[in-house]
């Protein structure tokens, strides 16, 4: 135990030595003037964020940026994300790229960051605008997928695959109240309304939440199938939940009889599409979002103008057009 005490004394001494009294002065910032950017993500277990991080790291290397990746180990842990933001504030980064766990709860810690001169760019899950405005939080830019459009495309593909005779369809939603979950629900509703106008004889019999996760979604799907054995199609608001729905459908012996579409284009979903268990999913290019985030952060630091809102287009992925995700960002 003594050596630990010794270490502390050394650490404190080193703090004392270099305190303001001696004031080491230099013309060069310590980190060689590299911009410091933090990317705070919801979780890294979800491959969506892993790809976002990949894109951001690629761009950071190219532009010579010190990039720090942060993530919570649970997608609902708002307190942990608050602590992580406090930590990057204390370390003093220049820009925070933020994908909030909770679009309201993140406003208060970001205000602290703003007060210390850190700029904020919002990625993916949009920060609650009313809350941000009320608190006087300035968000430099929002880079996110067009969730409504993506959900519309995915739902439309499912309905068209069922055909004009239609039948019962369902949706498995994400965490209720989360912005992107609500937007995907909106996209689903729009697609259903449009399809009805186009003469598709469909009926929505169930809308329930699978909380973005595989296992809860599987249980919900089992419940839906129990009540509606003649279900024709289901749209899942993300791939993780679709994997659960597929499992439920398989165990009910209905694989191939129910059209499943999803959202996110994870590798597992691509495998499911190739195996014919999943009909379609939506590619939202999370790596572009990561790249754009870093790119815009650097431009912002140079004093350039950046657009306030960038909606990264989504693409429908089916067996026909199953291509590996493009590796580079489009020219913006």
């Amino acid at each position: 135990m003594r050596w630990l005490a010794f270490l502390t004394v050394m650490a404190v001494l080193s703090a004392g030595c270099s305190d303001k009294g001696t004031g080491t002065s230099s013309t060069q910032p310590a980190a060689g003037g590299r911009p410091r950017i933090a990317l705070s993500m919801k979780s890294r277990q979800n491959p969506f964020f892993a790809r976002m991080a990949e894109g951001a790291e690629l761009k950071a290397k190219e532009l010579g940026v010190d990039l720090e990746l942060l993530a919570t180990d649970k997608e609902t842990d708002t307190e942990k994300q608050t602590s992580q933001i406090e930590t990057v504030i204390s370390k003093g980064v220049d820009v925070i790229l933020m994908t909030p766990v909770d679009s309201k709860a993140i406003v208060a810690p970001l205000l602290q960051a703003q007060a210390r001169g850190i700029k904020i760019i919002n990625i993916d899950n949009r920060i609650d605008q009313q809350a941000a405005e009320q608190a006087g939080l300035k968000i430099e830019a929002f880079i996110g997928p067009d969730n409504v459009d993506g959900a519309r495309k995915s739902t439309r593909a499912m309905i068209e695959k069922i055909g004009k005779e239609g039948g019962k369809i369902a949706m498995i939603e994400g965490v209720r109240g989360a912005d992107n979950a609500e937007q995907r629900k909106e996209g689903f509703n729009q697609a259903v309304a449009q399809a009805k106008r186009d003469g598709y004889n469909i009926e929505v019999v169930a809308m329930d939440t699978g909380e973005w996760m595989t296992e809860p979604a599987q249980k919900k799907m089992e419940g839906i199938l129990n009540q509606h054995p003649d279900l024709k199609g289901v749209f899942c608001a993300n791939d993780m939940m679709a994997l659960g729905a597929i499992q439920a459908i398989a165990s009910a012996g209905k694989t191939g009889q129910i059209v499943v579409t999803a959202y996110d284009n994870l590798e597992a979903a691509q495998e499911a599409i190739k195996a014919g268990k999943l009909y379609a999913t939506i590619e939202q290019h999370p790596n572009f979002m990561g790249q754009l985030g870093v790119d815009y952060a650097v431009r912002l630091l140079k004093g350039e103008q950046i657009p306030a809102i960038v909606e990264v287009p989504t693409d429908l992925v089916t067996a026909a057009e199953l291509l590996p995700a493009p590796a580079t960002a489009p020219a913006n």
Partner: peptide, 19 residues
């Protein structure tokens, strides 16, 4: 000239207690 001074990170010490 840019002056770089080092201080005790009181912000972080306070945050540890809050956390």
């Amino acid at each position: 000239l840019v002056q770089v001074t080092r201080h005790l990170n009181t912000y972080n010490q306070k945050k540890i207690l809050e956390q």
